[in-house]
Write a protein that binds this DNA or RNA. Structure first.
Lengths: 193, 193
DNA sequence: TCATTTCACATACCCCGGGTATGTGAATCA
DNA sequence: TGATTCACATACCCGGGGTATGTGAAATGA
């Protein structure tokens, strides 16, 4: 039984992505050696360079996947609710708990900004999750649930706050306390009528 | 005229720190080659390894210095004011504008967490600046200026928010808009009596 | 003051690992 | 079915972190 070339190619690429994700999450980008990822994926370094232009290229692809998943997880949590405000809170809570995932923690929050550069990281983060956050804030503002204000800087602030909180929780911080503190911050945005 | 050994040693160490800081800030930790730092400092790699146990060791020492300076800058800005609340705001604003310093941006905010590991970075950040933030929040809470609440998670959230905002500003974000957004977040912490 | 020791480096070297250039055999195509 | 493509494997280069060792001038002490 012979395997089609396209199938074989796809399988190898997938194996490299999966194994890369495992090792990047477990050991951190700079401690991972590409030949070892390839070996664990059942191929050699040559295959890796046939599919990706560099070690950073493989990492970039992994980051993209993990970010995609994270975005979907957050969106799914938000969609459980009908009320805009509750959607927002649910999304934030989902993001915080996602920090316990080693892949999110090590790959997305720690390594990605330095390996890919802050600009590229931000661009990827933008369309994967920060965009949802900005959309939610815009919706909340136009619905009058929070005070009307420029959304972009607020998005950055909240994004940074939640990133750090996620890291803190993953490292032993009190998740419940973090959620409550974040909730107080968010509630403070509501108009004091 | 002969130079004392201690003086020579101190001068070399200082030259390495200064040049290391320059290059780490300009090029990022992983793009810096240690031998080049040494050469620019007027010595060789051997001298660097005589003063620091590794490239990361030199980086650690640089991080410590930059963090020290940043803490003092923030504290100085806060001390310009008498009112507790105004002290707090001034400190936050000073931190935000500090992000435009390439050394703070590249070394402290981007590279330090991954190079030194998040735990060590957090420990250093703790005593250099996050501690002041926590102290300020504690003072504000016990003075009744903000609602009483656990200080630690709030400190992490605000620290993360300001780190991210500082990066955003340094990368072209609107500094004034960021300040205003942060101000709104902080104001939301005040009791709604 | 001079022999001895210490020390602040310089020099020479190792070797891991990212990247590249080239080979190869099986799928694909004319 | 022969030519071509392609998905890798193999062999190699070399930059750079780390180390082992040499050296000459300052410090020490008799």
């Amino acid at each position: 039984m012979t395997v089609s070339r396209a199938e074989q190619r796809a399988a190898t690429r997938r194996a490299l992505l999966t194994e890369g994700r495992r090792q990047f999450a477990a050991d951190g980008y700079h401690h991972v050696v590409l030949a070892e990822v390839a070996r664990a994926a059942g191929v050699t370094k040559g295959a890796a360079y046939h599919h990706f232009d560099s070690k950073a290229g493989l990492f970039r692809a992994v980051v993209s996947e993990v970010q995609q998943e994270l975005g979907e997880r957050v969106a799914a949590a938000a969609e459980q609710h009908v009320d805009l405000w509750e959607q927002f809170r649910a999304g934030c809570r989902a993001f915080l708990s996602a920090g316990t995932d080693p892949a999110v923690r090590q790959i997305l929050l720690l390594d990605a900004p330095t390996v890919l550069g802050w600009d590229e990281w931000r661009a990827m983060d933008e369309e994967a999750s920060a965009r949802h956050l900005a959309d939610a804030l815009t919706a909340l503002a136009s619905a009058g649930i929070i005070a009307d204000q420029p959304v972009e800087p607020l998005t950055r602030l909240l994004s940074g706050a939640m990133n750090e909180a996620a890291l803190w929780i993953a490292q032993g911080g009190n998740a419940e306390a973090a959620e409550q503190a974040l909730d107080r911050l968010l509630t403070g945005l509501r108009p004091t009528t």
